[in-house]
Simulated scan of single mutants.
Amino acid sequence: MRIVLVVLFDDVQSLDVTGPMEVFAGAELYREGSYRIRTASLDGAPVRTSSGLTLVPDQALADVPTPHTLIVPGGRGTRAPDLRLTAWLRAHGPRAERLVSVCTGAILLAAAGLLDGRRATTHWAYCDKLARDHPAVEVDPDPIYVRDGEVSTSAGVTSGIDLALALVEEDLGRAAALTIARHLVVFLRRPGNQAQFSAQLAAQTAQREPLREVQQWITEHPEGDLSVESLAARARLSPRHFARAFQTETGMTPGRYVERVRLEHARRLLEDTADGIEEISRASGYGTPEGMRRAFVKTLGAAPAEYRRRFRPAHIN
């Protein structure tokens, strides 16, 4: 039996706690004896979450046995970490077979020195702070979770569920993880390297209606003529004015936005359909498989066929 220990503290984010716990509880129902889930706070006293919910831990951290999987959630309580908690993590974290953080729980792991020399992520809003305060940590702000050896870190809130499902799949197999995902009505298909934001969310929404309409049109027509000249005509602006206004209002150039939309569209088709590579390259606006391959290798480090092999669910043939 694998002991899963979730650390509790005042002002913890409740969903960071309950999301992964529900996944592991579902795994225990799927295969009895798989996991034993425990919660613990520094002194064993109840804690109040950032949303006002009170959680009663099973015991004090000083009394818990060494867990197989140690989960450190995030929340407002990580902004000024209790030195006793980081000291406990520094002493006991390395003993766990798997060390996991959810959201800003990565800040606690970093404060304990447990992320030094490792690649990690956290909620997008705190990636800069994590990198600034802990330069020994290689912070990657894009993925929803990062696995570096026995240490795994996840982005904001619901990504803790994605990471927990990945860990269950590693332990019990894909059928178990898929059953749990269906029960929780969540996707099992979100791989760790999926971006925290879609292209539309990564860019700011333009203030002017013609530019907003262009943003939406790009998303709906990745295969279309998305040159600056064509998009500028759609917005009824000169190409120079359009390019300048688009970057000012969205925070990225039209070309960069188009690249992200096309890559996102191609990834979705590779994961969710059995369409051929050539068909997907045309539908995503790359024109040729070679053009799509170059974009995938540059951004994701894997060719489309390899990406599909890794991340397409087994039931899609």
Rank of each mutant, 00 (worst) to 15 (best):
L172Q: 01
R189E: 11
L85T: 04
I161S: 02
E169D: 11
I161R: 05
I180D: 05
L108G: 06
I161M: 13
L99H: 06
V151S: 05
V214C: 13
T78A: 04
G192F: 10
R174K: 05
A112W: 04
T121A: 06
A176T: 05
S154N: 12
R147C: 03
P210D: 13
I107M: 14
I180E: 03
A155Q: 08
K129S: 12
P141G: 07
I180L: 11
C127D: 11
A202E: 15
E170W: 01
L184Y: 04
V151Q: 03
T78L: 08
A111M: 04
R118I: 03
R182C: 02
A87S: 14
V146I: 12
E138A: 10
P143K: 08
V186D: 04
G113F: 03
P94Y: 06
A166L: 02
V137A: 00
A112I: 09
D140P: 03
H92E: 15
V168Y: 06
I180F: 12
G117T: 06
L109I: 11
A206R: 07
L211Y: 01
E209V: 15
P141M: 04
S198C: 11
G156T: 04
T104Q: 13
H123F: 10
R118G: 04
R98T: 11
D116Q: 13
P210R: 13
A106H: 07
A202P: 02
D148G: 09
A177T: 01
A155F: 06
D162R: 10
D82K: 06
G75W: 02
A177V: 05
D142E: 14
Y126Q: 15
I144R: 15
E150F: 00
V157D: 05
L184C: 08
G149Y: 04
S154G: 10
L109D: 06
D162Q: 08
L99P: 02
A80F: 00
P210C: 10
A136M: 07
R212N: 01
G192I: 14
L184H: 00
C103L: 06
Y126L: 15
F197D: 05
L163Y: 05
A125L: 13
L115K: 09
L130W: 11
L99R: 01
L89E: 07
R208P: 04
G113Y: 02
T121I: 08
S159L: 10
I107R: 13
L85G: 03
L83H: 08
E209M: 12
P191I: 02
Y145S: 08
T86W: 06
P81G: 05
R98S: 08
R84C: 01
L108A: 10
A195S: 15
A120K: 08
R132A: 15
T205Y: 02
A106P: 09
L172D: 02
L165P: 06
E170N: 00
R98H: 15
E170P: 04
A195G: 14
S198R: 14
T179F: 10
A112M: 09
A125T: 13
A111T: 14
R119V: 10
C127M: 12
D116N: 10
S159E: 07
